[in-house]
Design a protein around this nucleic acid. Sequence first.
DNA 1: ATAGGTTCCGTACCGTAGTACGGAGTCAAG
DNA 2: CTTGACTCCGTACTACGGTACGGAACCTAT
Lengths: 126, 126
Amino acid sequence: MLTIGEFAAAGSVGVETIRFYQRRGLLRTPAREGGIRHYGQEDVRRLRFIRQAQAAGFTLEEIRELLELDAGEDRRRARELATARVAALDAKIAELQRARDALGRLARECGEGSTGPCPILASFDV
Amino acid sequence: MLTIGEFAAAGSVGVETIRFYQRRGLLRTPAREGGIRHYGQEDVRRLRFIRQAQAAGFTLEEIRELLELDAGEDRRRARELATARVAALDAKIAELQRARDALGRLARECGEGSTGPCPILASFDV
DNA sequence: ATAGGTTCCGTACCGTAGTACGGAGTCAAG
DNA sequence: CTTGACTCCGTACTACGGTACGGAACCTAT
């Protein structure tokens, strides 16, 4: 039985973030037991899922839908969301990889030992 | 010699975005020639750099600094920004790759043919 | 039983990156 | 020489994901 402060700490977020997620419908707002609301392990699990899904690029609205789907039967929709995100992630990863290579080159060409120009603007031209 | 509309189109952004970048100091505001400002290839190059750098995860403020560095002599600082971003990109790419794998697994396990549970919440637990 | 730390709740505010609005000026074609 | 599209400019508004404020209620240790 966790207070909101302990709950927030368990998910490495702030108390205000918990309240924000509750307003957005991502987390339940448990009943008060003498003025104070209490949270359990299932809530922590849910909160951690939210953070992971966020890192995967889902918006809070999409995450809300995923959490709803988890309770329901609609495998098709869940699959849809997952495969769409996989495609988006593949594209994003490729894009970041290209940017990473361009910047790695820039850092090397702009190294201490090197002379010549330090082609910042040109670094992405490749 | 491009008008702002042509310039914006050359960088695949809206006219308002150009003005926004000018306010933020990312793009110059050329002198007016009879009421209308005109842009050249160097501006287009700069604008394209901004979009690429943005895709690489730089904020507009960092991009502003990069553009300043390009004009100056401070190789050390440019190198610093580039290597820091390479490290950030490597971390981000690894994170997205993990998320991608988790979602790929979810999509498979949640496939049409499969029975069993469709473990959305559990998908990131691995 | 009282002080200090939390919690509760509504409301307001923040940074980032734009996007929209509206009136006045300008320019090119008919 | 007017019409319609585009430009100029300031100001306001948007979406997203939080973060902060402030007064009242509550809980714990002394």
